[in-house]
């Protein structure tokens, strides 16, 4: 695989929580620049922990995360914030500030570039506001800019979260179960926007998903976690019945989302 451009190289990543739970037991994989990588696995298999160890919302216990060839697994202070800015994240429950307007939520993506004093007074640069509006248009809710975030539907809120993530000007977008609390119809809208930013903006996407049908539709490549270990890596189309049972346990049945 010489000549491949890897944005992330994860080596023997381990995470043990203070209560003794071993969420990750030595996970290694590479992420190609610009790909749409999907992580599958049961609840509690370590998917969410893995994402949070990449953008350093959590501190890995051991191992390496090479981000553009630089190990960021154990950096501290200001460097952690920089890692978070360059690896944006969206969440299952959107994690917006519900009482604030959509535009104000999107602008929080620019916090890392705005001085504390200015941001506390709500003074964001004009260019930031313009960018924020562009990204809102990109995810199709430009007309909702001055609506309060909690007035939007789940799918719209997740699109606001995508716009906020894009405002960070990241290189990687981490998505932690982005459609798990949405209804099936809205699922596809949100996934389509993720694919759009992946293809049009060239953003590398690492996405945790539950539904295998979505995986087959959107993923370039898939890795599977089970009990904190990597159990599969490869083409989503090659996941057959046998693999499915190995990942999700015996007797598991696939649920289709249309």
């Amino acid at each position: 695989m010489a000549g491949e451009d890897y944005i992330l190289k994860v080596k023997d990543l381990e995470k043990t929580y203070p209560n003794g739970v071993k969420a990750l037991k030595g996970v290694s994989f590479d992420v190609k620049r610009g790909e749409f990588l999907v992580i599958i696995g049961l609840s509690g298999s370590g998917k969410s922990t893995l994402l949070r160890c990449l953008n350093r919302l959590h501190d890995p216990t051991a191992g390496e995360v090479l981000f553009n060839e630089k190990d960021i697994a154990h950096v501290k202070g200001q460097e952690v914030k920089e890692v978070r800015q360059r690896m944006a994240m969206i969440f299952q429950h959107f994690n917006l500030i519900e009482r604030h307007s959509v535009i104000k939520n999107v602008l929080t993506g620019a916090l890392s570039r705005t001085s504390t004093l200015k941001s506390l007074m709500g003074m964001f640069a004009k260019t930031e506001t313009k960018k924020a509006k562009e990204y809102l248009d990109l995810v199709g809710i430009g007309d909702k800019a001055y609506t309060r975030a909690d007035q939007l539907s789940g799918g719209q809120q997740q699109r606001v979260a995508i716009a906020r993530a894009l405002t960070q000007a990241p290189e990687v977008l981490l998505a932690d179960e982005p459609v798990a609390s949405l209804d099936p119809a809205t699922c596809h809208t949100v996934m389509d926007y993720l694919r759009k930013v992946n293809r049009e903006l060239g953003l590398t996407i690492i996405c945790n998903l539950h539904f295998l049908s979505l995986v087959k539709e959107y993923a370039d490549r898939v890795i599977a976690l089970k009990d904190g270990k990597l159990v599969y890596e490869g083409d989503p189309k090659e996941i057959d019945e046998a693999w499915f049972e190995r990942i999700y346990g015996e007797g598991a049945k696939e649920v289709h989302v249309n």
């Binding site: 914030k81 978070r84 800015q85 969440f91 917006l96 993506g109 916090l111 941001s119």
Partner: peptide
């Protein structure tokens, strides 16, 4: 949730 959301942007 929102705390994690804002932290994830690289905010102080």
């Amino acid at each position: 949730g929102p705390i994690e959301g804002i932290e994830s942007t690289g905010a102080g």
